[in-house]
Amino acid sequence: MSDAITAEGLVKTYGEVTALDGLSFTVPRGTVLALLGPNGAGKTTTVRVLTTLLRPDAGRATVAGCDVVADARRLRSFIGVSGQYAAVDEHLTGAENLEMIGRLYHLGAARSRARARELLERFGLTDAADRPVKGYSGGMRRRIDLAGALVADPPVLFLDEPSTGLDPRARAALWDTISELVAGGSTLLLTTQYMEEADRLADQIMVVDHGRAIARGTADELKDRVGGNRIELTVTDAAEMDTAREALAWVAVGAVQAEPESLQLTVPVTDGPEALRQVLGRLAGTGVRVRDAGMRRPTLDDVYLTLTGHQAPGTDEQVQEATR
């Protein structure tokens, strides 16, 4: 049994909305898989199915060898879940929350208490341990919620958009914590809208869109799939954009993206340095004044754009609500 999570043809529909459309994947034990996609792509639904909160309409899934439907009760003792919205009790203190979770994992009173203190210390919440969660900052709430997922030291962890709503500093701190966690050998399924987050935390990234997996690989593999490099060119005047676009089209392996406001053009190419030289050569006699020209590795935003044909969206709360 080398896969901690398996999913086979998962389907879930809400009326007209298809949240999962035959999603299949596996997560080998001890690895991190990031589900990357915009709101409404089916990430949260996937987590809800795998954590037994939601029955799939069709398909099968197992976590730690347990079927998500038939063996749900046993499955739950092997998982830790931290949701998109901090699922802790506001009126209880941090310590009381963790202790309660420990008891509900049936660790026993003494072990639950000790484990709560241990985790509070590890997450830097010792000072806030005996204050109601109500008064915690956003970052502290995330940490206490994450700590809740770790109470029973479960072999499989699910983190649904762990850093949504955090400021950059709190996010960086959370990433460090998660990195340490997975270094300890846990299997982790992570959902995120942030390319950077997937890149930073995951061994493998699966891009999902409309309830389907549209690509899977390491961050580097995905970047390679959409062309080895990007050429970025900035011109001086809007009138020069068209000429520059023609020159770029010669070397392009995908669509040329133009941003008229910043006078910038971006294009995927296979051989970066060679393409850059050709483009600059073609532009030399045209009178186009190149202000800036450069080459860069594609970001996951580029990956997303190429694979789905649309920009990775920012927020689209309605769709998210519909799939919850």
């Binding site: 954590t51 037994t52 909160l53 009760r73 046993r74 739950r76 003792s77 998982i79 879940v81 949701g83 998109q84 919205y85 901090a86 699922a87 802790v88 009790d89 506001e90 979770i101 509900l104 994992y105 049936h106 809740g148």
Partner: peptide, 17 residues
Amino acid sequence: QKGIFDRFRSLPMAPSA
């Protein structure tokens, strides 16, 4: 209206509790 029931339901506890 909070996520606490999701937490409970993901735990190996008796649902009737």
